[in-house]
Design a binder for these strands. Structure first.
Length: 441
RNA sequence: GGCCCCAUCGUCUAGUCUGGCCUAGGACGUCAGCUUCUCAAGCUGUAAACACGGGUUCGAAUCCCGUUGGGGCUACCA
């Protein structure tokens, strides 16, 4: 049986690269009926934080990844000490202060058999003696990693290829300890836009940031799976469940991949279009409440109609909350460009006044009724459709861009619609009076 | 610097192992059009790549060598 592991260090949040490594491990285990173990590498007691650990675990859960075993290296120091002492007794290990150091044999060619890269060989001349136990008694990474992987029966070590240079050191230790060497699978790294290692300066790197911005876990998982893996045909939409049926290490590439936020956004938009409405509503409520646009006890039926109106228009929940904010807050901000473009004509106030009257007597106040009345008004006034709709849009939404105006009006409701029209008409009239006085001089 | 890894459109990639079906396919993004009250969505179309140089071969994106470029490692961090 295949046993794999993901071994994060709780010295920082779970980032995109780690999440992808974890996903590939998990997929390999689930695809082959194996086991997936989570091992927390918290040997650096001063840098490891509970806060990071919690974030890592909840991010994995958010992605839908579960584990068949959970270990903490900080609880296994005795094991590492025993193994180090045994090796010390066997020789090839020397002391330097309190530290135990493994003496790397000279002139040996260490061969790595990598499932993705094939054979890689390194001369031990390039490898320094390896610290097993540090002066403070804590184990060094390459040592406890080897001990744990062997003890936990890990069959495939799937990790980023930045670990390739650690591999010969570890192989040497497996052999020195008389332990079975596992198979190595070094997957390509994820790079930033400038092709350097993905880091903070490339924008959001932690999973929780994506969660908070309103990315769906399904979309992120799907995108991450496509970074370095492909199904061999042109399909691109995969659920976690489908991935477990399709995933194979054979189709993992060796070239590093640039993280492309645009494609992630597109995928997220695809998922949003078909997402379960109740789940989407929950996310929208949380996001809008967070921004104080609404109270958490908002009328979900109303919110639902707005979300549906926007489904094809937003790619993250955060975007939705901004695009649709005018529905929730009464003190809307008017875009100056939109105002000067569509509310500048002197006769606009008059048109809006007519619109207001038409809407006032619209009953029932639904999309069809509104459209019928507004269109017949346009016909009666013998004006261009846009010459009424555009000003109305600015008056009601504050901007020049929105979903269809009849839908917007219906969603906004009669009261809000009339109030906003009134307010704008009043302002425009004040200005018109001013124009009159000036021209009368 | 030394060692190691990698190299197809701007980006993710198919094709490379098992040379010919590749005048290099798909997707995101770009641009244009359709639709239209604006914006999306949707549909249609457009531009866009085998890093370079040598081989091997009847034939190379595909195999070999070199160059260049990028990345990684070079901690008593993980």
């Amino acid at each position: 049986m295949n046993i794999v592991r993901f071994a994060p260090s709780p010295t920082g949040y779970l980032h995109i690269g780690g999440a992808r490594t974890c996903l590939f491990n998990w997929l390999f285990a689930r695809a082959t009926g194996g086991k997936f173990i989570l091992r927390i590498e918290d040997t650096d007691l001063s840098r490891s934080k509970k806060e990071y650990l919690d974030e890592i675990l909840s991010s994995l859960q958010w992605m839908g990844l579960d584990w068949d075993g959970l270990y903490y290296q900080s609880q296994r120091f005795d094991i590492y000490r025993d193994y180090a002492q045994n090796l010390f007794k066997k020789g090839n290990v020397y002391k330097e202060g309190e530290a135990l150091i493994y003496k790397v044999p000279k002139d040996i060619n260490v061969k790595i058999h990598d499932l993705i890269h094939g054979e890689i060989s390194i001369d031990t001349e390039q490898i320094k003696d390896q610290v097993l136990l540090k002066s403070d008694g804590s184990p060094a990474y390459n040592f406890c990693c080897v001990v744990d992987d062997a003890l936990m029966g890990i069959t495939h070590i799937i990790r980023g290829d930045d670990h390739i240079s650690n591999t010969p050191k570890q192989i040497l230790l497996y052999e020195a300890l008389g332990l079975k060497v596992p198979k190595f699978v070094h997957i390509p790294m994820i790079l930033g836009e400038d092709k350097s290692r993905l880091s903070k300066r490339h924008g959001a790197t932690s999973l929780s940031e994506y969660k908070n911005e309103g990315y769906l876990p399904e979309a992120l998982v799907n995108y991450l799976a496509l970074l370095g893996w492909n199904p061999g045909d042109s399909r691109e939409i995969f659920s976690l469940n489908n991935l477990t049926k399709e995933f194979s290490l054979k189709r993992v590439s060796k070239t590093a991949a640039v993280f492309d936020i645009k494609k992630l956004k597109w995928l997220n938009g695809q998922y949003i279009k078909n997402y379960d409405t109740e789940k989407l509503l929950d996310l929208a409520v949380a996001c809008l409440a967070e921004k104080k646009y609404i109270m958490p006890d908002i009328d979900r039926k109303w919110l639902k109609s707005i979300v549906e109106l926007y489904r094809s228009r937003f790619q993250t929940v955060n975007e939705f909350s901004e695009l649709a904010s005018f529905f929730f807050i009464d003190d809307i901000r008017y875009d100056t460009d939109a105002v000067s473009k569509f509310l500048n004509d002197i006769d606009v106030a008059e048109k809006l006044e007519k619109l207001k009257e038409a809407l006032e007597k619209t009953e029932p106040f639904d999309i069809a009724g509104i459209e019928r009345n507004v269109r017949s008004l346009i016909e009666k006034l013998d004006i261009q459709t846009g010459s009424l709709i555009h000003p109305a849009r600015v008056a009601l939404t504050g901007g020049a861009v929105s979903p269809g105006i009849f839908e917007v009006i219906a969603c906004l409701g009669k009261e809000k619609t009339l109030n906003r029209l009134n307010r704008v008409i009043k302002k425009l009239k004040t200005r018109a009076d001013l124009f009159d006085k000036l021209s009368g001089l």
